[in-house]
Amino acid sequence: MKIALIGATGNIGSRVLNEALTRGHSVTAIARKTAALDARPGLNVQAADLHQPAALAPVLAGHDAVVSAVHFLASDFGKLLAAVRQSGVKRWLMVGGAGSLEVAPGLKLIDAPGFPEAYRAEAAKGGEFLAALKAEATDLDWSFLSPSAMIVPGERTGKFRLGRDTLLTDAKGDSRISMEDYAVALVDELEQPKHIRQRFTVGY
């Protein structure tokens, strides 16, 4: 599979890159700091401006899927959508946020008591991106993968649960996933799509 990965040098993007390459996929890594990416079999590195759809679209063209792994506050949904549409690629998988997941019927994590203020702006923007995908990207085969409340560097176990719109918690009430296992779930979805035009989530 040929994958265009936007934000390949970030915390999540770098792990998605490693997971995809390890599985033998061809990845075009699109990043601002391309010097941070070492040469690897199957890797093509491209610099592109996310805010210039006309320049980004040709870089995305010819791939089987586009993965967006960039912070919501650092990107623009309308411009990303325009670039993907202009590229002709139909499959678009977005690294999502946890803030829009429900912790109780009608109550989102971002609105629950104790939600960290430091993450509120990014979480709110992520919710806006998800809503825009549902409303505006009906012509594309998009998916939005929300992590658990806590996503940190850790082990690649390959053992986790998938859900839809409700925050996943373990027996102790903790909601967590390693960045490595998040990447496994994302590449699994690329290889065997099960959540077309849906948000889904991953956790232990």
Rank of each mutant, 00 (worst) to 15 (best):
G114H: 05
F160G: 07
I151V: 14
D165P: 00
R161G: 15
T166Q: 04
W92G: 08
F129V: 12
V103F: 03
E155R: 13
F129L: 03
R164D: 11
L101R: 03
Y119L: 15
G96I: 10
D111I: 10
S148E: 06
W142K: 08
G88F: 01
G158N: 09
E155T: 10
Y119M: 14
G127D: 01
F115D: 02
D141H: 13
S143Q: 02
P147F: 06
A135P: 13
S143V: 01
R161L: 13
S146L: 09
G96R: 11
R164H: 09
V84A: 00
S87G: 07
F129N: 03
A137D: 09
S143W: 05
T157S: 15
L140H: 11
A149W: 00
T138S: 14
E102A: 11
R164Y: 05
K90P: 00
L133K: 10
A132K: 12
G106A: 01
G127S: 04
A98S: 12
A83E: 04
S146E: 07
L93F: 12
A83C: 11
T166C: 02
S148A: 15
A118S: 14
R156Q: 14
L107M: 07
A98D: 02
R120I: 07
A118V: 15
T138Q: 15
E102H: 12
L145P: 00
E102D: 12
D111A: 10
L109I: 00
V89S: 02
V84N: 01
K159W: 09
V89T: 05
S87P: 07
P153E: 08
L130S: 06
W142L: 10
P147H: 10
S143E: 05
E122R: 12
T169P: 02
A135M: 10
G158P: 07
A83H: 08
P113G: 01
L168C: 03
G127R: 00
F160Y: 15
F160D: 08
G163M: 04
K125V: 09
R120D: 05
G99L: 03
A131V: 09
E117F: 03
L145M: 12
P105N: 06
L140W: 06
E117L: 13
M150P: 02
L101D: 00
A137H: 09
E117H: 10
D165G: 05
T169W: 00
G158T: 14
L167H: 02
